[in-house]
Structures are given as structure tokens and as C-alpha cells.
Measured scan of single mutants.
Amino acid sequence: MPVRRGHVAPQNTFLDTIIRKFEGQSRKFIIANARVENCAVIYCNDGFCELCGYSRAEVMQRPCTCDFLHGPRTQRRAAAQIAQALLGAEERKVEIAFYRKDGSCFLCLVDVVPVKNEDGAVIMFILNFEVVMEKDMVGSPAHDTNHRGPPTSWLAPGRAKTFRLKLPALLALTARESSVRSGGAGGAGAPGAVVVDVDLTPAAPSSESLALDEVTAMDNHVAGLGPAEERRALVGPGSPPRSAPGQLPSPRAHSLNPDASGSSCSLARTRSRESCASVRRASSADDIEAMRAGVLPPPPRHASTGAMHPLRSGLLNSTSDSDLVRYRTISKIPQITLNFVDLKGDPFLASPTSDREIIAPKIKERTHNVTEKVTQVLSLGADVLPEYKLQAPRIHRWTILHYSPFKAVWDWLILLLVIYTAVFTPYSAAFLLKETEEGPPATECGYACQPLAVVDLIVDIMFIVDILINFRTTYVNANEEVVSHPGRIAVHYFKGWFLIDMVAAIPFDLLI
């Protein structure tokens, strides 16, 4: 008679799926529990143990900040960024110097990925580790590398530091407007667009060049630039800015003055950032001319202004700041037409079709709590990747769950009947059967004279019903998954307890 339990259901295979997918890609990662103190490590794979030199037993239950890997060259700011990422709910990448158990130093890129439950609360953290440099290539500990984003994938490793954006290309926007319009339909740009040429040739750093990471940081200074100062900065030398009595002219307006920039070969870094931020506020060169004239017309309804409409929906549905990093990277690809469009465009503009998908598509409701890094690593669709929660398995109709209350009560009843059979069957065979043979035949009273025979008949009927119930009862397979398919249940029961239950259900007393 089957006594099969499996009270692990309803099970959740999400954690096993993450481990299996990460292991298949030869990654070095740990999984931490966000619900406990210090976000203790609950799993670390073999790749991480080989990377740091510690065994799994030495890593388990330690804080996922990996303070046991810190050393003299470990930056405090990087460690603080990892700790801050564990307090938030967004994906974050941090470069930090770690030390192995043998004392060797290596520069590592740590990717902190939160995993949320159905309520939107962070319950786990996945920390992925990628070695960037070994100890002989690690720089000085005073050099802070965590304020910069990861290198873009479309640049060669040897040319990542030679990417320079020439400031004269930004200063000569109005001069290039006529050349853009003359391109017409034969050019790649839309009317009114501004073409910015980027020099990728390796050259020595000069005062006129600005690194790509500095251009990325310009967006942080746009908020500090007032509207009046932006307007004066875009007017140009024809209309000098008016300053109040006793007030000095704005240095932001002076930063885009061609006369002032041409007199000296070098520009201050602050002026460069502010000038680029001011130019980015204009949607095209037409807006710059309109600002000089004193009238700013409404933005025209053409394809170039609607190019950012799908980007707005993608940004609203993005799951991490990696989408913004990807957008900034692609927006700086050289030799393309940049349409400086305000994100607050007309909502009635139709979304044009684009061959290049900048932001990841909208994630469906079932995966809105899973970050983009987890979705990318697992390579699963929205119909396959579940949320991290207890999910009731989908069972067929008329199927009994093996952990249901009805099955528990039924098993206790069958257990009592088995005990009765084990006690009274030998007793009936030894004593009652002998008395029946010696006594007179009682054929007239039937079952009324033999109450134990009636009980034995009921017990046999219950055993037959138990066999039928076992054909529709779920079970737990070797992978700790609840199986509810009727065919698989029948095959599993035939290979197991079916023969024993059938022999126990045969009414031998009635056959004798």
C-alpha cells in the first residue's frame, strides 16, 4: 500500500533555474538572501570558489559584500557603492579590487542584480563577478574607477581610450546646418538635424578633445543650467548677453562664444560640459537660429522629431539603469545623424518603425519583477520565466494532490484497515475457520451469522477504491517536481505499489 509523501509542494524551481543557467555559462556568482541580516550568502558556485580561493563552506553565510576579499588596494568608495546597491532595488555595476585567499590582487567587475517577489519586494541578490585585470595590471588604489561605466561593446579594446569628441564640431553647429540641408533625401539625416562627426583615429590627448566618459557625465550638469543662461549661451556672438549692473557675465554663455574659444586653444572642462549641455537642449539648428531671432517656433511634425517616441515608452518600462547606459552608448555611435529632440514631445505622434532597438522591449506582467540581467542570462521568455513566489501546480481535472487534506485522511483510514487485516486475518484463519468446520452448517442466516465476513468484505472494497484513487494521485519525481499527468501517474504506480495493492485487495476469504 503506498505511503508516498512529498510535502515540499507547491515547489518553486526558480532558484534552481537560475543556478542551472548560470552554471551553463561558466559564470562566477553568488546568491544572497536579502531578508536576513547583512544579506548572507546562501549559494556560491564553483567558479566563484576558484576565483577567490575560498571553499564553499568558508563563503556560505558570510555577508555578500565580500568584505573578506578586501585588501589594501580595495577602494572604500567601491565598497560603499556595493553596500548601497544592496540597500536599493536597481541593478548596478561596480569595479573593485579584490584579494584572493593567497593574497593576489585582481580588479573585478561586480554586477549586483536584485530579484523581487510578486509584491515588488527584493528577496534575493545575485552578484556576478568578472575579472577585468590581474594584480600586475591593477593601478594605484588612489585612482577611482567606479565613477565610470563599463566599456562599450562596439569599441575595440585597444581603442576604448582613444575615443574623442571634438569640441569644434559642437561649436560649428550653425555652420554645418547648410551642408545638412543640402544633403536632402540623399543624406542619412532628416531636415533640421545636426550631424556630429566623431574622430576615432588614435591621437595624443589634446586640450581640444573630450573623453567619452566626460560626455556621459554632461547629463548630470544640465539641471544646474538655468533657462535664461541656456538661451544666452545659444544666442551666440551676435547678441551678447546682458548683465545687470554690478553683475558679471555668465561664464556659461561665454563658453560657447566662437570668438572667445578661437582665441585660446584650450577650454576648461567645466565650460566644455556646460556648452555641450546647452546645445543638447535645442532640438535642431533651426531652433538655434530661432533663439537668435527671439522667436522659438513649435517643433515640426516630421520623422526626426518622432524618433524618440518609442524611446520614451522603453525608458518607462525599463527595469534597470543598464538600459540608460545602453541608450547613452548607442546615442554616441560615430558617423550617424543625431536628432536633438526633447523627450517631452507630442504624445499624438505616431511611433516610426526603427531597425535598431535601443531599449529592451516591454516586459510582460509575469516578468515585471525580474531584472534585465536575470532575463538576459536565463534566456527565457515571458511565458517560461515565473515570478519568485509559491505557485500552485497546474493539475488535470479529477486529480488528487498527494499533500491535500483528503489524501491525508484517506491514508490514515487505509492504515487502520491494514492494521485490522494484519490482526484479524490470522485470527480468523486459526480459530474461526476451525469452529466453522466443526459446527453445523448455517446457510440460512447468511452474513448475519458471520459479522467478521462483512467487515472483511468492506475492507476489500476499500482497498479496491484505494487502488483507483492512487491512479489519480500526484507524486514527486526525482527532481522534486509534482507530477499531475494521468499517464505518468499510471506508469509510476504500475512500477511501484500496484502489484502489492492488488494482492492485498483480493478477497481470499470469499474465494475459499
Results as ranks from 00 to 15, higher is better:
96 I>S: 01
12 N>T: 11
299 P>T: 12
104 S>P: 03
326 R>M: 07
307 A>D: 14
111 D>L: 04
9 A>Y: 15
21 K>Q: 12
91 E>S: 07
251 P>Y: 13
37 E>Y: 05
39 C>M: 08
328 R>S: 14
240 P>A: 15
17 T>M: 07
116 K>E: 06
251 P>F: 03
146 N>M: 10
301 R>T: 11
292 R>S: 05
220 N>M: 07
122 V>P: 12
355 D>H: 14
322 S>H: 13
284 S>H: 08
268 A>E: 07
120 G>S: 07
243 S>L: 09
94 V>Y: 01
265 C>E: 07
371 T>S: 06
82 I>H: 01
174 T>G: 15
376 Q>Y: 11
119 D>G: 06
204 A>G: 06
73 R>G: 11
264 S>V: 09
148 R>W: 07
24 G>V: 06
103 G>T: 10
20 R>Q: 12
6 G>S: 07
72 P>S: 05
223 A>L: 15
100 R>C: 01
221 H>G: 15
134 E>P: 10
139 G>M: 14
358 I>G: 05
25 Q>L: 14
2 P>I: 02
360 A>Y: 14
218 M>K: 05
221 H>N: 06
151 P>H: 12
244 A>T: 10
135 K>S: 14
74 T>M: 01
162 T>S: 08
16 D>M: 07
335 Q>E: 12
65 T>R: 06
329 T>Y: 08
163 F>L: 06
182 S>Q: 14
34 A>N: 12
290 A>M: 15
41 V>R: 01
352 P>I: 06
372 E>V: 04
156 A>Q: 15
9 A>Q: 15
21 K>I: 10
343 L>E: 05
246 G>A: 15
39 C>N: 15
75 Q>C: 14
190 A>T: 14
13 T>V: 14
209 S>K: 05
277 A>P: 07
207 S>F: 06
70 H>M: 11
74 T>Y: 01
149 G>Q: 06
201 T>K: 15
192 G>I: 01
141 P>F: 06
146 N>Q: 15
129 F>C: 01
312 R>V: 11
345 G>H: 11
263 S>Q: 13
127 L>D: 01
126 I>N: 01
326 R>L: 05
222 V>W: 09
270 T>F: 14
254 H>S: 13
114 P>E: 01
180 V>L: 12
297 P>C: 07
307 A>Y: 13
201 T>V: 05
91 E>H: 11
239 S>N: 14
362 K>S: 08
130 E>P: 01
179 S>G: 09
288 I>A: 14
365 E>T: 11
130 E>N: 14
27 R>I: 05
315 L>R: 09
82 I>E: 01
145 T>Q: 11
173 L>K: 15
217 A>H: 13
84 Q>C: 07
51 L>A: 03
135 K>W: 05
99 Y>P: 01
343 L>T: 15
86 L>G: 01
129 F>I: 01
249 P>A: 08
322 S>F: 12
45 N>V: 01
293 A>D: 04
204 A>C: 05
161 K>M: 03
339 N>A: 05
369 N>G: 06
237 P>Q: 05
318 S>P: 07
223 A>T: 14
291 M>T: 10
147 H>A: 11
375 T>Y: 08
313 S>Q: 11
185 A>P: 13
64 C>G: 14
68 F>Y: 04
247 Q>Y: 14
46 D>A: 10
54 Y>N: 01
304 S>R: 07
352 P>E: 04
283 S>H: 08
273 R>T: 13
133 M>D: 06
12 N>I: 05
246 G>N: 04
295 V>G: 12
289 E>Y: 01
17 T>L: 13
311 L>C: 05
107 L>V: 15
271 R>S: 10
270 T>P: 09
196 V>Q: 01
243 S>N: 09
335 Q>W: 07
288 I>T: 12
239 S>M: 05
365 E>K: 14
376 Q>E: 11
354 S>P: 14
216 T>A: 10
97 A>G: 05
41 V>Q: 01
268 A>T: 11
208 E>I: 05
144 D>A: 12
354 S>M: 10
84 Q>T: 05
144 D>Q: 15
86 L>K: 01
277 A>F: 12
242 R>H: 10
70 H>A: 06
351 S>W: 07
18 I>Y: 07
378 L>Y: 03
250 S>V: 15
228 A>M: 06
348 F>D: 12
238 G>V: 05
352 P>Y: 08
186 G>M: 05
255 S>R: 14
136 D>L: 05
161 K>D: 11
43 Y>R: 01
259 D>R: 06
100 R>F: 01
